[in-house]
């Protein structure tokens, strides 16, 4: 437990559990980054930040500080 998107390794998939609403930009939710959705980490930028993810059919880049706020359970 205690995993966030920031803990995923490249290629790994997690299911979004919850997040602190205040820490997440509304537009990220509106792009479909919502509890119950699958997130796959596609790539990490060379300096470890931002992260390139696929969620709800969208390919997005988010900063690690945002990624750390989104709790997930890893799929194995």
């Amino acid at each position: 437990m205690g995993d966030t998107i920031a803990n995923l390794k490249i290629g790994e998939i997690g299911i979004i559990q919850d997040f602190c609403l205040d820490a997440i930009p509304l537009n990220l939710l509106e792009m479909g980054c919502l509890p119950g959705k699958e997130v796959r980490l596609l790539q990490i930028a060379p300096l470890k930040d931002p992260l390139y993810i696929k969620v709800n059919g969208s390919h997005l880049a988010i900063r690690i500080e945002t990624a750390k706020q989104i709790n997930i359970t890893k799929l194995r």
Binding site: P25, L28, M31, H59, L60, A61, T66
Partner: peptide, 11 residues
């Protein structure tokens, strides 16, 4: 400010 950085990586 709080970071609102989200960008789409288009095809």
């Amino acid at each position: 400010t709080q970071s609102l950085f989200v960008i789409e990586m288009p095809n």
